[in-house]
Amino acid sequence: MVIAVVDGQGGGIGRAIVEKIKAAMPEVHVIGLGTNSVATGQMLRAGADDGATGENAIVHNMQHVDIVVGVIGILNANSMMGELTPTMASAIGGSHTYKVLLPINRCHIHVVSVEDIPLGRHIDNAVSAIQNFIAENQ
């Protein structure tokens, strides 16, 4: 299984996601896809097996990964203060990969009827969803 983690700005959320995925499933291949080099660097330092930066990297890799993980804003054009381009959002949303999205109420998106819990618990829930998907698809 190849898992892409998409993040931007400072890369803190992507770093936390990569750390928890690699701790729970060290055998999976994780690609850190950053909208900028700082985010990519954070994910690589957290243990991502590979990393790439920018629009073309994100668009290209959506064809080659099994799972994509990130905040719900990665489906929204111009989110992350404009770092996530319409082309990136279209590639992520239009890909046939399994998407695991964290309900972070930023980027002018407010997700209702979702439990208001700390980010770390959302990430734990995302890792659990990934593990279940992998188990069902092996």
Rank of each mutant, 00 (worst) to 15 (best):
118 P>N: 12
31 I>T: 09
114 V>Q: 14
34 G>P: 10
47 G>H: 05
42 Q>M: 15
100 V>S: 10
32 G>M: 05
32 G>H: 01
117 I>P: 00
33 L>G: 11
77 A>Q: 10
40 T>K: 13
51 G>T: 08
77 A>R: 12
63 Q>R: 15
83 E>W: 07
34 G>D: 09
63 Q>K: 15
41 G>I: 00
85 T>D: 09
29 H>W: 03
110 H>V: 14
118 P>I: 06
102 L>Q: 11
52 A>E: 12
43 M>W: 07
79 S>Q: 06
40 T>L: 03
41 G>F: 01
70 G>C: 09
26 P>Y: 05
85 T>L: 08
27 E>S: 13
32 G>E: 04
118 P>C: 06
106 R>G: 00
56 N>T: 14
90 S>N: 06
118 P>F: 01
75 L>E: 14
93 G>E: 00
76 N>L: 09
112 V>A: 06
116 D>M: 13
57 A>P: 02
74 I>T: 03
56 N>D: 14
34 G>A: 08
108 H>P: 00
119 L>S: 06
82 G>T: 08
82 G>R: 10
112 V>M: 13
56 N>F: 14
72 I>E: 04
86 P>H: 10
74 I>L: 05
90 S>E: 14
26 P>M: 05
41 G>H: 03
86 P>G: 09
94 G>H: 08
43 M>C: 09
84 L>E: 05
39 A>M: 10
29 H>F: 07
78 N>C: 05
117 I>R: 14
106 R>Q: 13
87 T>H: 05
59 V>D: 13
87 T>L: 13
60 H>C: 04
113 S>Q: 14
47 G>P: 06
116 D>E: 15
53 T>L: 07
52 A>C: 04
88 M>Q: 08
51 G>Q: 11
68 V>T: 12
41 G>K: 02
